[in-house]
Design a binder for these strands. Structure first.
Lengths: 224, 224, 224, 224
DNA sequence: AATGAATGAGGGTTCATTCAT
DNA sequence: AATGAATGAACCCTCATTCAT
């Protein structure tokens, strides 16, 4: 916090220098997502980041390292976000699910992060490290989060006693699928306008599922 | 020497030639799905098909033509399958959906065809022709099929009046997502065993959705 | 000359068989001349000769052997032709030159043989054997032929005493050049229509040269 | 630190870059002329230019572009040369022809440019663009140049009234032929030593033709 | 004798990576 | 730190040649 003795020399030159890695990561992410890792040329990445080809190698030792940096950075920033909103929620589990999922999803779908899912899907088989990383950092905490809420709903009698893991998938897979879709078929002209209003769809989807999930109001329980 | 009337002239030479295209398509599909188009080398495809590199080019003019042939063939064979099972079904629309979807899906998920979805997702951006082809041949007929059943259910009062397109997506997207998953993260060791019992999951998923979809049993208040 | 004992079984099948080598040579000559040896594919040669690719190798051990056969055959047939017309000619050496050269040249320019010059020019550097063969079979006898007539003209006082070798080149090089031209630029559309009336040009050319060659009529010899 | 005003920034790095295109063109010319376009490998060109295979493609987009650049550059430099020496000549048209032709030709025959004629002859059929280019840039201006002098000679009564186009060919074709010869048979061992003294031959050739071209000296019968 | 499917070495071209400036 | 020229391994594709039929 002590002001650095050098003058206000955080010149635009230096500021740019500090931003280079992020600019490169952004450029790489968008290109990797669009064309795939193998079909993306390093010159393109450098060009989109506004630097020369050689500069890329000052920051990342190889194209593969760049890929891993892209994924690691985006996923790390997502882990925290979901976890916060969880526990301090009041109200029914149904509402909580609706709230948490739709908020998280709205954050993701409109940002570059949505592409990471496509990127992972596309590249895991070629870079197995990614699988392990993704399972540990994203899949597991995410499932625990959502699964925990579902389980709580069952315990409270709010939900019917169903397979928790299955419900989580029913909830989440379409969301992931839409992220992927956005960066593949959805990016092509005039394909399936429904999926182009994803905010609305996801809300409907969750409510539809909650409809099947909620325990029948235990008045007289006439249904066998 | 006894002349067999029909020309047994399908010599082993000719028989091999007749089978080559399919062998190459199968090899190409599995490799393209596994590694992506750009990361697959033509020698690998040839080797997996048991022929030499040059032979591939006797049947397909280029790597890109091979890709298009792979997709076209697999999709063409799927178009017919779905359409058949449709109309001559008796019983409730809910049962019909459960039946048609789970049967189609079991056919797909256990065959090589499941990979085509990943392949399309991965490559459309690089080969825009594919988007058009896929939209015309798969997405549209598929949506009409499922959407038609849902609409019929609503008309009959079996289902609540919901957004048809949205329901179709809620039903289908997880299935497509599981196909994709099978060939990416699912192919990596020890990731998410839940998704490794996909038959059961999809049945649960459909029933869960049907639960949210069915009109409340009109016992007390038979609203028209 | 004794009729072969086999019946008239020189069926069209056999006749074709006997003609195969020549058909292949003709096809090869025209393609080699048009595109050059390296740029000609063996399939093209076979196709133009109306046989399959494999058949070519029944007659010629390799593409290179085919080239040599093409050249050898065409040149051999030219050697004899020129030599005959020479000695038994009556009249002036000028007339003889005009006669021999224009007749030989008319035979050559309108037949496929004209292409051989281009072929040799194009390929000697890659196949040095050809140089030796050509020098021995064509250049040397040809020069002796024409040079002999020129020398005789000088000896008789019909021609001025000039460098014989040079005159031969002055006479012959344009003819060779026109053969080459016919198969390169001359085969392209609308190039230099003059050269497209080569019969007339060559006659003019020879007469022009003879005009410079003839000794001034030895009346008073006023020129120093 | 003393600032030299003009940037001596032509570092050896940059200097090399500036010279690369010419080095590559020279290497390509000599190889294309020697072996033909199709039989020349790009690595050979690169190696002869002292660079690696990849470097070639930094300067020329393809082997074919390299060919066209080779031809265009050499021809462009020849166009100007001939045109300059023309008009400001004093003396007879015969002297002018002798002077212009032999000077131009001596420039060409001893430089690499002589090979371009063989190259064009060899490759036009495969690359029709070249024909058009050559006709427009070389043949037409050249014929106008020489033909103009001949016509002037006729108009002045210095030459007999002959076919101008034909004379131009009689003059020029042997020169072109010798250029071609130099790079094909002439490059093989011990072939036709006459043509190996080309300077002398061409002078003789021109004078021989001029002998046939000149109007008879109007001493006794001054025909108008 | 004839075919044409199959081969695989070789050539043109690309592109990740290096390094002198 | 930044550049961009240079490299060369690797990839797609061709085509001369072989061989089972």
């Amino acid at each position: 916090m002590t002001p650095s003795p050098e003058p206000t020399s955080t010149t635009s030159h230096q500021r740019r220098k500090a931003e280079r890695p992020q600019e490169l990561l952004d450029a790489a992410l968008s290109l990797f997502v669009e064309k795939g890792f193998a079909a993306t040329r390093t010159d393109e990445v450098a060009a989109r980041a506004g630097v020369s080809k050689g500069t890329l190698y000052l920051y990342y030792a190889s194209k593969e390292e760049l890929l891993k940096a892209v994924i690691a950075q985006r996923l790390s920033s997502q882990i925290a976000e979901g976890a916060r909103q969880v526990a301090e929620h009041e109200g029914s589990c149904g509402d909580l699910l609706l709230e948490v999922l739709s908020r998280w999803w709205e954050d993701v779908i409109d940002s570059d992060a949505s592409g990471v899912f496509k990127l992972i899907i596309t590249e895991v088989r070629n870079f197995p490290d990614i699988a392990e990383f993704y399972a540990r950092e994203v899949v597991e905490p995410g499932q625990n989060l959502i699964g925990g809420v579902v389980q709580r709903g069952i315990d409270r009698g709010e939900f019917r006693p169903v397979d928790v893991g299955g419900v989580v998938h029913s909830l989440v897979l379409p969301m992931v699928m839409l992220c992927i879709h956005k960066h593949s078929l959805g990016a092509c002209s005039a394909v399936d306008p429904l999926v182009q209003a994803p905010h609305q769809f996801i809300r409907q989807h969750i409510e539809l599922l909650l409809g099947g999930l909620r325990a029948p109001v235990p008045t007289t329980s006439p249904t066998p």
